[in-house]
Structure formats: structure tokens, C-alpha cells
């Protein structure tokens, strides 16, 4: 079971320039662990000891996972995950 993960420009140094990669796992936590196994170092840019880093936003099918179940959010292969840095609007 593989889920598509869209990677922002700033993290593509880890994915060999790929905009989208796939990762496996039943939860976001497992997906990130799998990503880090395949693209070493990327996990540390997404997570710190308290969970998702402050300026990292992760969306499951466009919905911010912080308003779902955070790292415990269930993921299937039909879902798409998008990672984006937090930027200003207004």
C-alpha cells in the first residue's frame, strides 16, 4: 500500500528533486517513518521532539492534519498527502 506524498521545493534535496514520492504506512507517523527510511534526513526536517515542526503544515487530501488526528491520522493508498511550509497570507 503506497500513498502519494507531495514534497515542497525546500525538502526536495532529500528526494533527489522529486516533487512527489510514495510512502507506506497506516498512519501519518508511519508514513513519515517510511519516508525517512527511503530519504534519510527528511523526517528530522518534518518532526521535532514535540511532533510536527511549527512551520511545517501537512494536509491529508487538502485538510490540515492538525485538525484531524495529527500524526495518528489514518492514511490509505487512496489519500494524497501534501507537505507545505507555513507562509504569510493577507
Amino acid at each position: 500500500m503506497a500513498t502519494e506524498v507531495r514534497v515542497p521545493t525546500i525538502l526536495r534535496e532529500f528526494t533527489g528533486g522529486e516533487k512527489a514520492v510514495t510512502a507506506e504506512g497506516p498512519t501519518l507517523q508511519a508514513i513519515i517513518a517510511n519516508l525517512d527510511a527511503n530519504y534519510p534526513g527528511i523526517g528530522g526536517r518534518l518532526l521535532d521532539s514535540s511532533g510536527l515542526r511549527r512551520f511545517v503544515n501537512v494536509y491529508l487530501n487538502d485538510e490540515d492534519v492538525r485538525f484531524l488526528d495529527g500524526l495518528d491520522t489514518a492514511v490509505t493508498e487512496r489519500d494524497a498527502i501534501t507537505i507545505l511550509p507555513a507562509v504569510a497570507g493577507g
Binding site: P8, T9, I10, R45, R53, R54, F55, V56, N57, Y59, D62, E63, D64, R66, F67, T82, L84, P85, A86, V87, A88, G90
Partner: peptide, 25 residues
């Protein structure tokens, strides 16, 4: 999103996530 590093990210000082029910991109 062309930041040089993630630490340049920005969250408005006004933002309090506890006010929201959900958030979509």
C-alpha cells in the same frame, strides 16, 4: 513557498488554532 529554510516560515501572531474546527488548503 520559495523559502531558504523552514525556519523562515511564518504564522501570524493573531493565529490561535483552538478557535478553528478545521482548516483546508
Amino acid at each position: 513557498y520559495g523559502l531558504r529554510n523552514l525556519e523562515e516560515g511564518f504564522i501570524p501572531e493573531l493565529y490561535d488554532a483552538s478557535v478553528l474546527t478545521s482548516r483546508f488548503s
